[in-house]
């Protein structure tokens, strides 16, 4: 067989090879994205995602979607413009959550015995599905950035609320009011994590009284739009084959 001859001899064989290639790439992509995205997310959103007593209605709601929309935007750019595949964001977020759960279960619980109700990761899948669908329906990066980015920010808090609401019930503890989440953070000793590091309820957003989360979510959505555009271009640049095209 010379170098110019095909490696397959029939259409059936070509389909089989193609499918094998699909599974290999999907498997590899999942874990490569998991690794990169997980490191990125731990560095830029780490403590907000690690600890339940960081999951507040201001900064957690604002920071996490902005930092989380990065890899989905980049991977969407590659998968959509090259293959018209509409699961880039979901693949990223599922990879991230898989990695996070492995980390939280084996490392935070199995190794250091922090209870899971203290260290569970944030939920991002609903926003990712909507982001994928908007790209598929519109086929437009601009529209996906505007509508998808906004939806990604807006959906974050409500999709996490069923999980964190029980932990926001108030408790009177030795004469002070705390939430169950605060109390968990206080009870389960983190030697290297003094309370003052916690960045919660900081800021000047006081005009809307107690309804802070929706405003934070809108702000997060707006910034997510910009971050989406930026990372979309990172993805396109990263996925370029200009330098490898045969003459």
């Amino acid at each position: 067989m010379s170098a110019s001859q095909s490696a397959v001899r029939s259409r059936a064989e070509a389909v089989k090879v193609s499918r094998t290639f699909d599974w290999l790439i999907c498997f590899t992509l999942f874990f490569v994205v998991l690794g990169g995205y997980h490191v990125h997310f731990m560095l830029v959103a780490g403590d907000w995602d690690f600890w339940v007593d960081w999951k507040d209605r201001r900064l957690w709601v604002t920071v996490l979607p902005i930092m989380a929309i990065t890899f989905p935007a980049a991977v969407q750019a590659v998968l959509w413009w090259r293959y018209r595949i509409a699961f880039g964001a979901t693949l990223c977020v599922m990879g991230l959550l898989f990695g996070e759960w492995v980390n939280r279960y084996f490392n935070f619980w199995g190794w250091t015995y922090f209870p899971i109700n203290f260290v569970f990761p944030s939920q991002l899948i609903p926003g990712a599905i909507v982001l994928d669908v908007i790209l598929m329906m519109s086929g437009s990066m601009q529209l996906t950035a505007v509508l998808g980015g906004l939806a990604f920010g807006l959906l974050f808090y409500p999709s996490n609320w069923p999980v964190i609401a029980p932990l926001h019930q108030p408790v009177e503890y030795n004469g002070m009011v705390m939430t169950l989440a605060d109390l968990t953070g206080y009870h389960y000793i983190r030697t290297g994590m003094p309370e003052y590091i916690r960045m919660v309820e900081k800021g000047t957003l006081r005009t809307f009284g107690k309804d802070v989360a929706p405003v934070s979510a809108f702000f997060s959505g707006f910034v997510s739009i910009i971050v989406y555009v930026l990372w979309h271009f990172f993805g396109r640049w990263f996925g370029s084959t200009a330098f490898t095209t045969a003459s």
Partner: peptide, 22 residues
Amino acid sequence: IVAATMASTNAAYPITTPLQAG
């Protein structure tokens, strides 16, 4: 689903407070 679960959660936990800090 997000909207429905948000509403049902609010019904199940009508009293919640923000994290305490300061």
